[in-house]
């Protein structure tokens, strides 16, 4: 019975993640349009016998997906076929899998059926390490994709991606360490419980510097503007996915957005109290509605972080490559080290 429930939760999360991607693409296009005083997609809609099923514009992601599916799937003649096929898969799988240890809700007690559902795919006791490991695996997709296409722009993109993600992973990890120092545990569910009672307990306010560093590093990890140098349309055509088309391209696209979703899940869990809302949604309630309420709270917080991602993307221009490396190695890493030192001193005293 326990395995069955875990399986159900896992399938639900997988399906939900795949549904989030088109919504996120739609949201990105809408928000970018609003920022630029435009309307965004507002034509494609679904009407069955005069009854509007989907309002205008909401079917745009489906239309895009269908278009991508029917595009010619090209492989360059001199490409390394195996790696060329493998790269899009690597782009999607680890980024989706990174979500599996994130607790997206409290224990859901369904008294009438005698169930106690753990709203987390896997409660690994070093959960945050699993997320980090999986999300850094995704760089292989960019490196392989860039190298396998045997073309100059993808190669440049792949090189940049590798260097960038390695540099910013250090800052990301160091920022996490100071948070984990204050939390004293690697168990994500436990970290959420620690933040559940007061807004001031949120690590966002207890560790503002770590929050800032992690946010910046997360942007770089996910290749989002202002750090989207691996893609850099204006210099590298499309960066690592220049030579990709059709479904393979859309898998890269999906992987990028899944990485954003997973990363925002990490940010919400570690810094913004996860599924809890102090005073309103407290842990340990036995009500039937407790489970859905915590999930809803988590989703809203995640949406806020994703909105911030999109908002920043359409505000800031891209960094130059040397600026990127400067910020990573000369600013963020020393700051993160300083933060760890101060945190350790405060905790020890």
């Amino acid at each position: 019975m326990g395995i069955l429930i875990t399986l159900l939760v896992a399938v639900a999360v997988a399906v939900a993640l795949l549904q989030v991607v088109p919504l996120l693409v739609y949201g990105e296009r809408k928000i970018s349009a609003w920022i630029q005083d435009r309307d965004g997609p507002n034509r494609v809609h679904l009407t069955i016998k005069g009854v509007p099923i989907m309002p205008k514009g909401l079917m745009q992601p489906l239309a895009d997906a269908i278009k991508l599916m029917f595009k010619e799937d090209m492989v360059p003649t001199k490409a390394d076929r195996f790696l060329f096929m493998l790269a899009p898969v690597i782009a999607v799988v680890p980024n989706a899998a990174a979500f599996c240890v994130i607790p997206f809700g409290d224990n859901w007690v369904i008294a009438s059926m005698g169930l106690d559902v753990n709203l987390q795919v896997s409660n690994a006791n070093a959960g945050i390490l699993v997320t980090l490991a999986l999300s850094s695996l995704a760089v292989y997709a960019l490196a392989f994709g860039g190298w396998a296409a045997n073309s100059k722009f993808p190669l440049m993109g792949g090189l940049r991606a590798t260097a960038q993600i390695i540099s910013y992973e250090i800052a990301l990890g160091l920022a996490l360490i100071s948070v984990l120092l204050t939390a004293g545990t690697l168990d994500l569910q436990e970290i959420v419980h620690q933040q559940a009672h007061n807004f001031t307990d949120w690590n966002m306010f207890k560790q503002p510097l770590a929050f800032f560093i992690l946010l910046v590093a997360a942007f770089a990890e996910n290749n989002r503007l202002p750090f989207d140098l691996p893609e850099a349309e204006s210099e590298l055509v499309g960066g690592y996915h220049t030579e990709y088309s059709g479904l393979k391209f859309s898998m890269f696209f999906m992987g990028e957005y899944l990485a954003m979703v997973s990363m925002s899940g990490v940010i919400v869990t570690l810094f913004m109290g996860g599924w809890s809302l102090p005073g309103i949604i407290d842990p340990g309630s036995l009500s039937f509605f407790h489970g859905p309420a915590t999930v809803l709270c988590f989703v809203v917080k995640m949406a806020a972080v994703l909105f911030f991602y999109i908002w920043v993307r359409w505000t800031l221009p891209r960094f130059r490559y040397d600026q990127l490396m400067n910020i990573g190695w000369k600013k963020l890493i020393p700051l993160a080290l300083l933060n760890i030192g101060v945190t350790a001193l405060v905790l020890a005293s």
Partner: peptide, 21 residues
């Protein structure tokens, strides 16, 4: 300056659209 930029884009976001349909 980044804060100013974000505020600027946010004001545009809620400022309505210039599109003619």
């Amino acid at each position: 300056e980044i804060g100013k930029g974000l505020a600027n884009t946010f004001m545009h976001m809620i400022g309505g659209s210039q599109t003619v349909q």
